[in-house]
């Protein structure tokens, strides 16, 4: 979700096989650059293949981390959120006929002027269609439930703390109706100067 000079990603922290919960503190959201966050939902193995964890040492094939580092070496700067969002789209489209079973969400802030930032909010289907309307995007098993609540609760140009309230309430409402999500939730709130991560108390069933 985007606000005025801020963006946020909210996610649950559950990892499961079918109906059985495996992990209740699975990390799905990663900091790509200082201006961009990426949340990946979907098949656990593909999430980790795509992800950008700092422990990329263990996951030698963490795809996006590799591409980011290569870009940094070539260009001598961090990728802009908007550029990164397109890179993710092409990376997914590359696997058009054997897709990764993921649907990532990207939230970033690109500087467009003095104290002025344009939010980058987009989501993808598994083969790289980039969906972006600048307001909110949803992905994952609870996506259909989230569409409804976000549509109702979202207002444009929210300040960071208001955005936190709206996104948290939207997520919690959807979690209570989706049996495959829950078991803890995290909200990542990105402003130009600070990244705030908050763990929310959720139902554990």
């Amino acid at each position: 979700m985007s606000g005025h000079n801020c963006v946020a990603i909210a996610t649950d922290t559950r990892l499961s096989t079918q109906l059985m919960t495996i992990d209740t503190s699975f990390q799905r959201v990663f900091k790509v650059t200082d201006s961009c966050l990426m949340g990946v939902s979907g098949l656990g193995t593909d999430v980790q293949t795509l992800q950008l964890t700092l422990r990329s040492f263990y996951f030698s094939n963490s795809l996006m981390k590799f591409k980011l580092n290569l870009y940094r070496l070539k260009e001598g700067r961090d990728m802009k959120a908007d550029v990164f969002s397109k890179l993710v789209a092409t990376s997914l489209y590359e696997h058009r006929f054997g897709p990764y079973f993921v649907s990532p969400v990207i939230a970033g802030l690109d500087k467009v002027g003095e104290n002025e930032y344009s939010p980058v909010i987009c989501t993808y289907d598994s083969i790289g269609y980039r969906e972006h309307n600048g307001q909110f995007e949803v992905a994952g098993t609870g996506a259909e439930l989230l569409y409804g609540v976000c549509e109702t609760f979202y207002k444009p140009n929210l300040e960071p703390e208001q955005l936190f309230e709206v996104i948290s309430n939207s997520l919690l409402s959807a979690l209570d109706r989706d049996s495959l999500s829950g078991w803890g939730a995290k909200v990542y709130l990105l402003t130009p100067t600070e990244l705030t991560v908050r763990s929310l108390k959720t139902r554990q069933d």
Binding site: R77, D82, N169, L172, E194, V197, R198
Partner: peptide, 30 residues
């Protein structure tokens, strides 16, 4: 909409200061 304050219970919070980048950006390839 207004929300009840106690609906969202924050159990932990982390803050991470970001470096504000300065200087001009090289070419935009997008």
């Amino acid at each position: 909409y207004q929300f009840k304050k106690d609906r969202v219970q924050v159990v932990e919070e982390f803050k991470h200061k970001l470096v504000v980048e300065a200087g001009e950006q090289p070419m935009d390839l997008s």
